[in-house]
Amino acid sequence: MKDNPQWLERVIQWAAGQEQEGPEGPEDPERQEFQEYLEYIDAHGYMEFGAYRYMRRRERAALGLDAVTEAIHNPPHQPNPPKPQHRPRRRPGLLRRQLWVYRVLSVGVALCLAVIFTAVALSLPGFGETDVPALNEVAQRYLERGMEETGAVNAVTGLILEYRAFDTFGESAVLFAAAVSTALLLNAPGRRLRNYRGPDPVLSTLGRSLLPVILLFGVYVVVNGHLSPGGGFSGGAVLGAGLILASLVLGEEEMDRLLPQRTMSRATTLALLAYGLMKGYSFFTGANHLGGEIPKGTPGAILSGGLILPLNLCVGVIVACTMYTFYTLFLSREE
């Protein structure tokens, strides 16, 4: 930050949308041609991209070149000057004029929001004070009678899987819907599996030795969700990350043999159905399911808390399978 002017210049460039592209900026021939097109319409006025391409092809044909075999990004009649690695991107004049209003307006809105929010944050009741409105009788009820009503030691788990079990069902359904729509968007018919075994033996061995520990920790967090910090969401996330590590270490073919995609989607659907069946009765009886039909057990024992343990298992399966499904879908797309 010593070189203030240069740094400031970067920020201004960024805000104007004229940021230079980094080394991994897209560099394919289509894009090169598109850049040339942008510069052309900046100089000569607007023109459809298709028309521009047609014109260029005609030009090349007039020069006696074979338009099919010629590389698009290296037209011989216009020898490419050696371009600098980070040349500033140019924006066509038409778009620049339209975007100017938009950019100024959005900066203005953002600044207004920031000022209003800061004023509100400074006038809120102090951080960490006990007489805040958020700490009302709802939280008091959950904390005072949570253990006898839900049988769970962890009040957060008791809250999301007993008092608010209906909402958690909706959230699990959101996860399921996101996984299904991603699968629809990225569906690759002919998927090739590779047996990628890690870049070098050190990383591979380290991953292999870490894998059981991570999976065991994930299972522990899910199963102990009503007794200690954690639960289906946290443990499911850890399990999903562990499965991804397993796929990286063992290779995709091996993982596809152990846990094929079909099994994953079946497990998710079954877990969602099981959740619905277990909590279904309370959805029909006015969502008042604190009656105590199911024995709560002694708080602190592993078999306690009524339905919280099986519900935690269901949520854990849903979250872990969704995370792993995302990974396999994104992986299969690049082949």
């Binding site: 958020a134 809250l159 729509s181 995370m323």
Partner: peptide, 21 residues
Amino acid sequence: NPVPGGLVLTGIVVAVSTTAL
């Protein structure tokens, strides 16, 4: 207060799924 904890816990997981989408 356990109420924001429960909200944020589910929120984090839902945020990942929307990011993936």
